[in-house]
């Protein structure tokens, strides 16, 4: 049965469905509804909600709860995520599974509270110190806000690694039908956790390896996980790519605009195709190469000055021209703007 639900609220519903009963966070527009929904709902299912004194404290509460074996999450927006980077690095180093939501807003600095997609670099490329990766999922609808939250918890446990849900203010603030089906989602055992019990007494959760050889071995171990994840966890969506001449690539809210633009182009007989990464890390390289096999041009659209486009270019390796169109500051490209970009590309090719 469908319910009309806000994207931010759907995240909390997905989390509860996934068995998460621990939320630590700090309010920030446009992510505050996540904390508000968690404050309202978590305690009603026996869970914990705690408003921390800062995002720095929040991510370390997440670290502590994860170390003690909880399925745990936090959420914020760009400025808060900047503060959390230290803790995210520690979580990755100590191999603690946790889910961190970033509802992106305009930056740098205080920027504004309008939607942007400008945290791609900081979330996908790391942001904190050290050799680590975040797994990053990019929902584009309210339904995906819930579904990918469930997946985020599963991936976090599978790889004992922080998993980021990277959405923007539009997807966080919009309402759409949400269809949730109740099911028991098994939470894996965490024999490594420290729970204050005789069985877990010998366990140590830490990220310090003072000897260079020890730290290098640890980094190799992390790297092996990342290689495994990049082989099997890539997810993406395509639409009209079979005979496309121009391939439009975007994630999150930008992909919604691109979907409309491709539909319109097809109605007008123009051969445009659509590619949407759902995992931003690992980046779905093979799927993109497959989708781009017969196209003569790629247009990447983001609500940024061009961040994901770098991964598209790394994937394409110069075989096809990859162009970029972006809007920032809280402006979103309209279907008309994207359509005229497609027209320009088709004309350039003719």
């Amino acid at each position: 049965m469908r319910q009309l639900c806000k994207g931010n609220v759907a995240i909390v519903k997905g989390a509860i469905l996934a068995g998460c009963r621990s939320y630590y966070g700090y309010p920030i527009t446009p992510a505050s509804e996540i904390a508000e929904a968690a404050a309202l709902l978590m305690p009603q299912v026996g869970g914990t909600f705690l408003q921390a004194e800062s995002e720095v404290a929040a991510i370390n509460m997440v670290y502590g709860a994860a170390a003690a074996g909880a399925r745990v999450m936090t959420a914020s927006s760009g400025p808060g995520l900047s503060l959390m980077q230290e803790g995210i690095s520690y979580c990755a180093g100590a191999e603690l599974p946790c889910v961190i939501v970033d509802i992106m807003r305009g930056g740098p600095g205080l920027g504004n509270i309008a939607p942007e997609q400008s945290d791609y670099f900081s979330m996908v490329k790391g942001g904190g110190h050290g050799c680590y990766r975040n797994l990053v999922l990019a929902p584009a609808s309210v339904q995906e806000m819930a579904d990918l939250t469930v997946l985020a918890f599963e991936l976090a446990d599978r790889y004992r690694n922080p998993t980021i849900l990277l959405a923007d203010g539009f997807v966080g603030q919009m309402m759409e039908p949400l269809d949730l089906e109740y099911r028991e989602i098994p939470i894996p055992e965490r024999p490594w956790a420290v729970k204050g019990t005789p069985e877990t007494r010998k366990n140590v959760v830490n990220s310090i390896f003072l000897e260079p050889d020890d730290l290098e071995a640890h980094i190799r171990k992390l790297e092996a996980k990342y290689i495994r994840a990049s082989q099997i966890e890539c997810r993406s969506e395509t639409f009209h790519t079979e005979d496309a001449e121009v391939l439009l690539v975007g994630y999150g809210i930008a992909s919604r605009v691109l979907h409309s633009a491709v539909e319109r182009a097809r109605r007008d007989g123009l051969r445009a195709g659509f590619f949407r990464p759902i995992t931003l890390w690992p980046f779905p390289k093979q799927a993109l190469l497959d989708a781009a096999q017969n196209v003569s041009r790629i247009l990447v659209v983001e609500l940024s000055n061009g961040q994901m486009v770098e991964d598209v270019r790394l994937t394409i390796e110069g075989r096809i021209p990859v162009d970029f169109y972006g809007r920032t500051g809280g402006n979103a490209p309209s279907v008309e703007e994207v359509y005229s970009q497609v027209m320009q590309h088709l004309m350039a090719m003719a």
Partner: peptide, 12 residues
């Protein structure tokens, strides 16, 4: 950050 981490541990 120990008191924040300890908070998460104790609440769990």
């Amino acid at each position: 950050r120990a008191p924040a981490g300890a908070t998460g541990i104790k609440r769990t």
